[in-house]
Amino acid sequence: MSFEVYLSGEIHTEWREEIKRGAEARGLDIIFTAPVTDHDASDAAGDHLGPQSEGFWRDHKSSKVNAIRTRTLIERSDLVVVRFGDKYKQWNAAFDAGYCAALDKPYITLHDEDIIHPLKEVDAAALAWATTTEQVVETLAYVLRD
Rank of each mutant, 00 (worst) to 15 (best):
D112H: 10
I108E: 13
H111L: 01
A67N: 03
D123F: 03
A41T: 02
W91Y: 10
M1D: 01
Y142F: 12
T72I: 03
H117S: 13
D123H: 09
A141S: 14
A23R: 02
Y88A: 07
G27P: 09
W15F: 14
V65P: 00
L110W: 05
W129C: 10
G85Y: 00
T72Y: 08
G9F: 09
S62K: 07
G98F: 06
H39D: 02
C100R: 06
E10A: 04
F32N: 01
P51N: 02
A67K: 06
L73S: 04
K64G: 04
M1H: 03
V122C: 13
V65H: 07
V122P: 01
L110R: 03
T131Y: 08
I11W: 00
E54M: 04
T132Y: 08
K120T: 08
H60T: 10
K120I: 09
A41M: 07
T70R: 04
A23D: 05
G98Y: 02
A44T: 06
T131H: 12
G22N: 06
S63A: 06
T13P: 02
A25N: 05
D47C: 11
R69W: 04
A126S: 14
W57H: 08
S63L: 09
A125M: 15
H111R: 01
N66G: 00
E134H: 12
A97D: 03
T70G: 00
E121Y: 15
N92S: 15
Y107S: 12
I116P: 00
F95A: 05
F84G: 02
V136P: 03
W129D: 03
A93Y: 01
D114W: 12
V137L: 04
A97P: 07
F56K: 15
G98L: 01
E121D: 11
K87D: 03
D43P: 00
I19Y: 02
E24G: 00
W129R: 15
E4I: 13
H12Y: 07
E54R: 04
K89D: 06
H48R: 15
A126I: 08
W129L: 09
A126P: 03
V5N: 04
R76T: 06
D112E: 14
E24K: 04
L140W: 04
Y99W: 14
E14A: 05
A44E: 15
F95S: 08
T70F: 00
E54N: 11
N66S: 03
L73Y: 05
Y6C: 02
E75C: 07
T133H: 07
V65Q: 11
